[in-house]
């Protein structure tokens, strides 16, 4: 199927936007929100786990690396499409990533190397179908993850 024809078939079914302070307590909250939102598409247990994990990585990154000085906001945007496509956007207005390619490498971390594994992007990548990272120093980071849910979902 070519991509043009797919775009026409796909219709936005539901969308949710949330903005919350970049504090670690909200990592669990973000996971719970995403799980509740995704539940309407009747995902498998595995899909739900993958969604929660990938999102947890993205939000943790925003909290830890986006705002090393502390204060800031994280914007979460969830969209569900008629063909079972689930899109998660996690955005911060923090310090940004100087070298995105390098940051995406497994085991790379600028955090406390004793305690941070550098596996965040790798987990996001392997638990979703597509991962886009747009970032610029001083401008913040936008992470977009796309997950194609099992087609059983009908509008």
């Amino acid at each position: 199927m070519n991509s043009e024809c797919r775009v026409e078939e796909r219709k936005l079914c539901n969308r949710l936007e949330a903005v919350f302070p970049a504090i670690s307590q909200n990592e669990g909250l973000a996971r719970a929100v995403a799980a509740a939102f995704a539940a309407q598409a009747d995902p498998t247990v595995e899909e739900l786990t993958e969604i929660r994990t990938a999102l947890s990585e993205a939000v943790s990154n925003a909290v830890i690396y986006g705002y090393p000085q502390g204060e800031g906001q994280v914007r979460l945007e969830l969209s569900l499409y008629s063909d079972g496509r689930f899109v998660m956007v996690v955005e911060d207005q923090g310090v940004g990533i100087p070298d995105v390619e390098r940051a995406r490498e497994p085991l790379f971390t600028t955090g406390d190397a004793q305690e941070r594994s550098g596996m965040g992007f790798t987990v996001m990548e392997s638990f979703t179908d597509r991962l886009d990272v747009v970032s610029a120093p001083g401008k913040g980071t936008r992470i977009t993850m796309v997950k194609q849910l099992d087609q059983s979902y009908e509008l």
């Binding site: 996971r31 786990t49 929660r52 994990t53 947890s56 990585e57 943790s60 004793q114 305690e115 941070r116 594994s117 596996m119 965040g120 790798t122 987990v123």
Partner: peptide
């Protein structure tokens, strides 16, 4: 019931 890559860090740090 849930774990993300932070769990890896917990193990790595203790391993040291």
């Amino acid at each position: 019931t849930f774990m993300d890559s932070s769990g890896i860090g917990v193990i790595m740090g203790r391993y040291n």
